[in-house]
Design a protein around this nucleic acid. Structure first.
Ligand SMILES: [Mn+2]
Ligand SMILES: [Mn+2]
Ligand SMILES: [Zn+2]
Ligand SMILES: [Zn+2]
Lengths: 151, 151
DNA sequence: TGAATATTGATAATGGTTTCCATTAACAGG
DNA sequence: CCTGTTAATGGAAACCATTATCAATATTCA
């Protein structure tokens, strides 16, 4: 009955606690990056060489469903994942994406004001369109300083 | 030298005005939906059966580059496109996405306040992270009223 | 009009993600 | 602890949106 919140979450939904699942959480816990399935696989193989890429995809999908990870598309042709409640990160943040080198910055500037407005908007939208809103994304796209220098 | 703004834009960038390009603009002008490349292709074939899907992709890519259309990912595994300055739509809007049936609603509620905050945020982020910001996306994800009823 | 060249469209290739299915591992009940 | 039931795994093949290739065609402009 004890254990990290994500184990609790798995249990609540009737899913089993397995090595691959724990390993993937471990990898996501230890990075500030937004890893793709294959990047996670590469790290995972170092720990357990017999793990399969299929399992990575399946697990990330499961975790996304139950809210343990969040799946993003930043426009580079592959999905990227981030642990919900990553201890290395601020809880709520939005994203700044370099369309050239694909660098992703988590920013929290103005996030308080943004959140306030987001909540207000979310309420209004829920009422007006009868939507049950789960989450939102805010992405700013542009060119990072390094890519600007390099032309 | 005259003609719609997108023709001007093509010309400014040194691209030619061709039938497929005009046709794709026409299709996007006449819908409020967010069409995928294949959906556009299906409409295009009705007008010119010899058009190729490749051309659709190429053209949408070109239009995205020069700002004539905007490309979005709403999480259903294919890119979706929307004409910039579609006469059927409000200029600036954000999106409400049903994760179940993939319905997409353009909303403009609070968009004025949002935009104000977005501009402020954009300025602050540009300065702080030395980013040259081109655009942003705001997506709310949830379940639409119909999908709620259907369980 | 005709040469120069940008664009097109058919086909094949790519690559991230899913599906399939036989094998393995988790775990509740004994 | 065993053990049976059933969920989870991993390798291979399939899937499918998107891209690359390249010969044929259309546009532009002198
Ligand atoms: Mn992030
Ligand atoms: Mn829209
Ligand atoms: Zn960059
Ligand atoms: Zn729906």
């Amino acid at each position: 009955m004890k254990g990290p919140w994500w184990q609790q979450r798995l249990c609540d939904y009737g899913f089993r606690l397995t090595n691959p699942r724990a390993m993937i959480i471990g990898i996501l816990r230890n990075t500030e990056k937004h890893l793709s399935a294959e990047e996670i696989y590469i790290d995972a193989v170092k720990i357990n060489p017999s793990i399969g890429l299929t399992t990575i995809y399946r697990t990330l999908d499961l975790f996304t469903q139950i809210g343990v990870v969040q799946k993003f598309d930043f426009g580079d042709g592959r999905a990227r994942y981030e642990l919900t409640n990553n201890p290395l990160k601020k809880d709520h943040h939005h994203h700044l994406v370099c369309v050239k080198c694909k660098t992703i910055i988590d920013y929290t500037d103005f996030v308080h004001e943004e959140l306030e407005l987001m909540n207000k908007t979310e309420k209004a939208l829920s009422r007006k369109y009868r939507f049950n809103i789960y989450h939102h994304t805010v992405h700013f796209y542009g060119i990072c300083s390094q890519c600007q220098r390099e032309g």
